[in-house]
Design a binder for these strands. Structure first.
Length: 414
RNA sequence: GCUCCUGUCGUCUAGUCCGGCCAAGGACACGGGGCUUUCAACCCCGGAACUCGGGUUCAAAUCCCGGCGGGAGCACCA
């Protein structure tokens, strides 16, 4: 038998000995199945040999190794070098990216308050990826609802300050309230091409139709009619009397996808534009226009937006644009009792916190006052990854990272 | 209810796409020891997990089916 041993078999027997020694050293006795796995993983030729033949070799070698004394195993194993496990550094690679990819990202807050730790996770991830794949990171204020989400003037600056403190490299700052003419241009284009229509049904009728998958008469109106109705939206129609809808699929399983709303009339003064405009875009419409306009190819957002991709796909197709790549991220919540911006607002009102920058507040401003370094927040965010599971902030871990960073920087040196 | 997403140590996670270098790695927390006048920090050591049940395979955290748990969306909000 020994005379017929091929070169491959020698190689395998040698590898088996090496793995068996390591296995015996680490766990007391070597196990054949573990050794076989390692051989399959490291020696491609092993498959050619066939499982039975391989097992015979491994069984023999494992038997020999297990008959050795502890000292002998230790000595023999010491002759080999076993690589340490590798730990990935930083953020994972983008599966679709290659060496020349540049990632253009955006952080799109509503200017209604200060940045929480949850927001900063998204912002830092955007910034990090636009650095990892050199591209641009934009800030875009989504302030298109002066009624239910009234923008706060101070917030525009406070948010930018927080982002800069966090070390984000901002390539440009946009406000959607500056961009209404652009949205109108595309709305008209869509109306002309029959991809969208002005709907004058009442809110109740529309809700019922969507729920039941029924197309209303507005849907089949001519382009001329739609354009004329669009003009009337500027002044004749009252708030709630007409909206612009995207033509999607009235039979879509999710009723909210069925001919979703693109623009509506709001007769309330906007803190930035006053009464200049009264037709305001809805989120899904303005987002698509802006992302395309700004050359965004990587959208990083909270996973609650995941469903919006389905809606937006119709718009991208209608305009002939390519949908950007997306990363839907699990929400990083400050703690069990304070998990949302509104909880912080409430705590301030009730006097439990002195303000958004209270050192106990889970806001960027609060952490700053508390002595947390921006680098610590970034490192924490990066270590928490891009998974879709929600998680609570592990404050002890953040503080541990912070301690280490402060020591490295000599901040607390005596 | 419908549509979609998700489930790894106490916690946050790596690994899952492409099965085998995983009897599952790291960090924080915890326990023990060291150092220090004490505490903290720091150093060393240790315990600690693949949601469950089937299937495929020589081999499953990884693939397939089902159950259970968690989350999101179903706005003229973003």
């Amino acid at each position: 038998m020994a005379l017929n041993m091929s070169e491959a078999e020698d190689k395998i027997a040698e590898a088996a000995k090496k793995f068996a020694l390591k296995n015996a050293r680490d766990y007391g006795t070597a196990q054949a199945s573990i050794v076989i796995n390692k051989i399959f993983a490291e020696i491609p030729d092993a498959k050619k040999l066939g499982f039975k033949a391989l097992k015979a070799i491994v069984d023999r070698v494992v038997g020999e190794v297990n008959s050795l004394s502890k000292e002998e195993i230790e000595a023999e194993a010491g002759k080999y070098v076993f690589p340490e496990k590798e730990q990935r550094e930083g953020l994972p690679d983008l599966p679709w990216a290659d060496a020349g990819t540049s990632a253009n990202t955006r952080f799109a807050p509503n200017p209604s308050g200060y940045l929480t730790i949850g927001h900063s996770k998204i912002a830092i991830l955007c910034d990090e990826y636009s650095k990892k794949y050199p591209g641009k990171f934009f800030v875009r204020f989504e302030d298109t609802d002066p009624k239910t989400k009234e923008p706060k003037i101070e917030a525009y600056k406070a948010i930018v300050d927080d982002l800069e403190w966090l070390g984000c490299k901002i390539a440009g700052i946009f406000k959607q309230s500056d961009r209404l003419e652009i949205y109108y241009k595309y709305a008209k284009q869509l109306l002309e091409s029959g991809k969208a229509y002005v709907c004058t049904c009442t809110r109740e009728e529309m809700q019922r139709n969507r729920k039941e998958g029924i197309s209303c008469a507005c849907r089949s109106a001519s382009a001329e009619e739609n354009l004329s109705r669009w003009e009337k939206m500027q002044s004749v129609f009252k708030e709630g009397e007409a909206v612009v809808r995207m033509k999607t699929d009235m039979q879509h399983p999710n009723p909210s996808v069925r001919d979703w709303l693109m623009l509506r009339i709001i007769d309330k003064s906007h803190p930035l534009t006053g009464n200049k405009y009264r037709i305001w875009p809805l989120y899904n419409f303005s987002v698509v226009i802006d992302d395309h306009d700004m050359g965004i190819n990587l959208v990083i957002r909270g996973k609650e937006h995941e469903m919006n991709s389905t809606k937006q796909k119709y718009l991208y197709d209608a305009l002939g644009w390519e949908q950007p790549h997306t990363l839907d991220i699990g929400i990083l919540k400050p703690s069990k009792d304070i998990s949302h911006k509104s909880d912080i607002k409430k705590a301030i009102q009730e006097g439990r916190l002195t303000g958004w920058d209270d050192p106990r507040a889970p806001t960027v401003a609060g952490f700053r006052k508390r002595g947390i370094l921006p680098g610590a927040i970034r490192e924490y965010v990066i270590s928490s990854g891009i998974g879709k599971n929600d998680s609570y902030l592990d404050i002890k871990k953040l503080e541990a990272i912070n301690r280490k960073l402060r020591a490295d920087a000599g901040v607390d040196a005596k």
